[in-house]
Design a protein around this nucleic acid. Structure first.
Lengths: 304, 304
DNA sequence: AATTACTTTCAAAAATATTTTGAAAATAAA
DNA sequence: TTTATTTTCAAAATATTTTTGAAAGTAATT
């Protein structure tokens, strides 16, 4: 191995990143002369120029350009390994593009993802909010979180909260004005806030109690294709919504919403983490899934 | 970064590999005292013991065990990068399990793979000879080279020699004894060496000339499921074979076999590189494919 | 056009680090 | 018990790196 000094390599990377030897020296709290000597040494060891420098500007040579990613990788790999060994915690360095449902994503999952990023600081995320499963193909995402089970057998669905169901809810203000329905059948007397997924409006609401099953065709003056908008309408007292229990837990706990007909439960709304391929089940995805699964279960357990 | 010296890291890896500081020192042509000091330094930098040493034996600590793979990776990565930059040649470090047809594999492709390994010395191969496509699932292979196009749409087939066809051939000795067929129809008068793939014996041989098409039901006293065996029978003068032109080039060039009815060509026998998944199309596979494709084309071009 | 504020680099001295050397202590094998 | 080999040590000899102060160059500003 021609390269002797990891420190020199680090200075090279930092110099390339910051665009100046002095800046790199400042970052490492070294004198500029040290940084200069270090780079000179590295170039001498390799027998090639890495950075073309004039007194006021720097440019990577073709060789430097090609060494840079390998240097980064080696430094990060060793740094992570030492970190893992001394702290006993695993370091993961990855990037994920995630698509999430609009309501759950905006209101709860963002916080859970923040926790994940705090625990694994070298992970970066790109988040998109969408309720449509089809978007998983159109958008460049690695994983999607969705309600319902995908019909497409080419997709892999990992359950996050398989037992989740829709439930009825409304704000105390609405109930004070219009009364509370004693059974699902009375929904026809109420303004029902409906949700549209693609072309289909969810306006025949099903309900289950023990073995019993019933369904009601509901109507009302508001339909939205954004699940978060429907929830906000309900909180604002515009009517009754049928929504995933998981989405509602914060509002139920705070009292902004009240659960109706609690002895009845609505349609099954299993939450899954979906990816296009079992091979994309990277360690990062597995860790994220476990984290989200725990949070989902805690949430419904606390918010019965 | 706590680790300063790449040389120390190299000594650590070599010591772990060779089981002794002195042995590592000998490999690097250093004095044992240097190796000892180097390891001591590395352990001091990390603040942890990596190797437990008594005067006559070594053992990795748990920490050393975990640092070792990262150290190897960093050293190899940097070494490869420097090598690539200074030679301008790409270094790939990979392992491939390959399944190949028995005849082509044994007689020509092994040589082509040797060339590939010489060019990319850090690649290792494991080779299996099989003519059956189904084996790609049973055997743990990364890629398979096969004649014919796979019916299974889950497989990805990359053409190596799409225009390849079967042709008729026999040894000069056989032809001296039994004469040469003037047209495919006369094959019924000859001992035809047949090939069996799975349950199916290839005994209806098709032929094409311009727009014209004919087929002949052949018979004979020998059938084998090994394509190489069929070729050997033909060389030994036991009859007429219908085989992939690519397989026959060396025998046709050397005169061990003679092509019959050269104005007719047999069934299409496209050669493809097959892998289970487009994601398995690693850079290594792409390079290998291009290498084999060139060799196949050269071979048939030289052996018309 | 001159000034300012910064850059990179240098050379010599000073400070650190590493290697050599020879010897000591330890241990597995002969 | 002897022998050969291991690891490690301490002191001296080398080698390397950093400090320091100065020089030379350049982009932006006055």
């Amino acid at each position: 191995m021609k390269i002797k000094n990891l420190h020199d390599l680090e200075i090279f990377v930092l110099t390339a990143d910051s665009g100046s030897l002095s800046a790199a020296a400042r970052l490492l709290e070294l004198s500029p002369a040290v940084a200069s000597a270090s780079l000179k040494r590295l170039e001498a060891e390799l027998g090639m120029a890495l950075l073309l420098r004039s007194t006021r500007s720097l440019r990577l040579t073709a060789e430097g350009e090609r060494l840079l990613p390998a240097a980064r990788l080696a430094l990060a790999g060793l740094k992570d390994a030492v970190e893992e060994i001394s702290t006993g915690r695993q370091v993961i360095r990855d990037h994920l593009q995630i698509s999430m449902p609009s309501d759950l994503g905006r209101n709860q999952m963002l916080g859970w993802l923040d926790e994940f990023l705090t625990r694994y600081p070298e992970v970066t995320l790109r988040i998109q909010l969408s309720d449509r499963l089809a978007d998983i193909y159109r958008q460049p995402v690695d994983i999607a979180i969705r309600y319902g089970t995908p019909a497409d057998s080419g997709l892999v669905a990992l359950p996050l909260l398989p037992g989740n169901r829709r439930v009825l809810c409304a704000s105390p203000a609405y109930l004070a004005r219009h009364g509370s329905p004693a059974s699902p059948a009375e929904l026809t007397q109420h303004n029902c806030l409906r949700y549209r997924l693609g072309d289909e409006v969810h306006e025949r609401w099903q309900f289950f109690r023990d073995g019993e099953e019933t369904s009601v065709a509901v109507s009302g003056n508001r339909v939205s294709d954004d699940a978060d908008a429907v929830r906000r309408w309900a909180v604002a007292g515009f009517g009754i919504a049928s929504k995933s229990l998981l989405d509602l837990v914060p509002d139920l706990q705070s009292g902004r919403l009240v659960r109706l007909c609690p002895d009845w439960s609505g349609e099954s709304a299993p939450l899954s983490l979906i990816c296009a391929d079992r091979r994309q089940l990277s360690p990062t995805v597995a860790l994220l899934r476990e984290h989200l699964r725990q949070r989902c279960e805690e949430t419904v357990a606390n918010g019965i």
